[in-house]
Design a protein around this nucleic acid. Structure first.
Lengths: 216, 216
DNA sequence: TTAAAAAAATGACTTTTGGCACTGCATTCA
DNA sequence: TGAATGCAGTGCCAAAAGTCATTTTTTTAA
């Protein structure tokens, strides 16, 4: 029994393309489509899809409005909605999630990933990607979520900035220790301090944050 | 005899979708694809498509840059290029036209329109306002930017780009594995491949390189 | 249908990272 | 004097990252 999917996107080429693509999978059956949020609502009632793939930016009724309205229906008649997004959409994506979308995927995703995501939400599970792609969407100049933003931007000492610069140059702890004539253990401690002050958990993010904030 | 078409778009879903869609028409045969301008140039040499459909906004080399470079080739080896654009972005479109594109289409067109557009440019005509555009082209084809990438960076596969983007979002291997519905071991292998192809030794450098080259 | 190729997974392994607790040392300031 | 602070170092530990060889699965092509 294949999963009944509905595709909502205002761009004909994209919508038809995704339809055509999904038709290659025998696990998926595209049973409906729509070019805007309003049409989507109507079609869902008519066709009862198992899963809805919905673009965010659409005329008449946006994907966000559509999701919000779907969420007011009786739980049994609510199909899970996966938002399809581009890199430009971060704010909208968060709105959509709050409105009740079950997850979102970048359009930059492979067919296999898409199919697996559809299967996942159809099985009643939540897409894990949201928490992750959020950061992709936010990109380099992303803003923090509310919890992080309470952070006191704890100032880095001169040495810590030096360390951070070397980290951002791609140096390993050992290389940093050699560059700064310190023991590797000391460097590790310093790196830990930097991570803590920046509120991140590993050096990759520290570097990203440093670039973000123009520290380097 | 069908028209050999190449599809260039960085968003996998869109690219594959258009490919799949075009395959429905027996007038069209998709013989190649690419995810960025650089790949596009390589593929054109290899596959000799009759017509190229190209997105404007892409990493590494934009559609505009790619068109500009194609236009430096010998006239016989220049396939006509149709730009695909998401929004009505006059600025970029005009740049692309000046760089030598034969026309542009919004992605919001039907399959039939797309096919007709392909046939049109394949017949040697220009898509929009031929008289005017043609003149504009004549006047502005002298100046070219010459940035040749001497290094041939080994091209990343679709999945590898997906991985790299997640890496650049600060995701751990485990998070990536969850986002892509793969095992952590597989992700480690893939990450290793990405590192090798980028010629770097750890993920921090990979991310830095990705940022440098605009992959993310 | 079978063979070859690509993608995915596994397991064993080494290195790197990051966290933590604790010591020592020098400087500053009340 | 002594408490506080910042910097350096040590040792230990667990987790994550990265490498490699190999197997299994899936896809693709012949």
């Amino acid at each position: 029994m294949s999963i009944k999917v509905m595709v909502v996107d205002d761009q004909t080429l994209v919508r038809e393309g995704i339809k055509s693509l999904l038709s290659l999978s025998d696990k998926i059956q595209v049973v409906a489509e729509a070019a805007d949020g309003q049409q989507a609502l109507d079609e869902i009632c008519l066709q009862n899809p198992d899963v809805v793939l919905m673009d965010i930016r659409m005329p008449i009724k946006t994907g966000i409005e559509a999701v919000a309205l779907i969420n007011q229906w009786e739980p049994d008649s609510q199909p899970p909605v996966i938002m399809l997004t581009t890199f430009d959409d971060h704010q909208l994506v968060m709105q959509a999630m709050q409105a009740g979308a079950k997850g979102y995927l970048l359009k930059d995703v492979s067919l296999e990933t898409l199919v697996e995501a559809i299967e996942t939400v159809h099985a009643g599970e939540t897409l894990i990607q949201p928490a992750i792609t959020e950061r992709v969407l936010q990109g380099l100049q992303g803003k923090q979520n509310e919890f992080d933003s309470i952070e006191t931007p704890e100032p880095l000492s001169t040495k810590e900035v030096e360390i951070l610069r070397l980290m951002a140059a791609g140096c390993s702890n050992r290389e940093i220790s050699q560059a700064m004539f310190k023991s590797e253990g000391t460097v590790k401690n310093q790196v830990s301090n930097v991570l803590a002050k920046l509120g991140v958990r590993d050096r990759t993010r520290a570097v990203l944050k440093a670039i973000e904030q123009g520290i380097i």
